[in-house]
Simulated scan of single mutants.
Amino acid sequence: MPDFVIRPQAQGAGLPALTRPQPKTPWGRWLMAAAGVLIVLGAAAFAGRDQIRAQLPPAWRPILSLDTFRALIAPPSTAARGTLPDQARLEIDLDASRIELVDGRYVMLGEVVNMGQAPGSTNRLKLIFRKDNDVLGERAYLLVEGPIGPGARLSFRQALDDPPSGTTEIVPAVE
């Protein structure tokens, strides 16, 4: 039978290593105090916003509304993003569009919607054929439709070539 020897551990051997504390600078205390003062002032302004609003000139009163605050921190709306005021923004409405097999050919039945502020026309329909995240191919078809007024829709029908084998997803766009 083997003999086991149990040796006593050295004192403090199982403790984590000790490090010296980092010297504290007064800046940390100043920053914490400033943050505390800002929180207290913000809470007081929120609690007394009606009294503060009454003291402001009429032109400044909307500044303290929650809608103004939400507009400042909210992401820009899709209507405001990427559209100049006097331009058309034509998109395919994916909810109203579909691809069907008609007489042995694939046909895209869809709607183009103008999300911009000016009338616009389409030039071509561009399709990207994908399998998961891989692009299998792209095709462009002549699609001259329009003019489409702001907020208006226009239906279209386009016969397609056979998609590349393995296609699981078709991403349409108009130009």
Results as ranks from 00 to 15, higher is better:
residue 25 T to H: 15
residue 28 G to C: 14
residue 30 W to R: 15
residue 31 L to E: 10
residue 33 A to I: 04
residue 37 V to L: 15
residue 38 L to G: 06
residue 39 I to H: 09
residue 40 V to F: 13
residue 41 L to Q: 10
residue 41 L to F: 13
residue 42 G to Q: 10
residue 43 A to L: 15
residue 47 A to E: 14
residue 47 A to N: 15
residue 48 G to S: 13
residue 48 G to R: 14
residue 48 G to H: 15
residue 48 G to D: 13
residue 52 I to P: 02
residue 53 R to C: 04
residue 56 L to T: 06
residue 56 L to D: 07
residue 60 W to K: 02
residue 60 W to V: 08
residue 61 R to H: 11
residue 61 R to C: 08
residue 61 R to A: 10
residue 62 P to A: 12
residue 64 L to H: 03
residue 64 L to Q: 03
residue 66 L to G: 07
residue 68 T to G: 06
residue 71 A to V: 05
residue 74 A to M: 05
residue 77 S to Y: 06
residue 78 T to E: 12
residue 80 A to T: 07
residue 80 A to D: 13
residue 81 R to F: 12
residue 82 G to L: 10
residue 84 L to E: 07
residue 85 P to Q: 04
residue 88 A to R: 01
residue 88 A to T: 01
residue 89 R to L: 11
residue 96 A to R: 08
residue 96 A to N: 05
residue 99 I to N: 01
residue 102 V to F: 12
residue 106 Y to V: 01
residue 107 V to Y: 03
residue 107 V to A: 03
residue 108 M to C: 02
residue 108 M to D: 00
residue 110 G to S: 03
residue 111 E to Q: 07
residue 111 E to I: 02
residue 112 V to G: 01
residue 113 V to E: 04
residue 114 N to K: 02
residue 115 M to Q: 14
residue 115 M to H: 14
residue 116 G to S: 10
residue 117 Q to R: 13
residue 121 S to H: 02
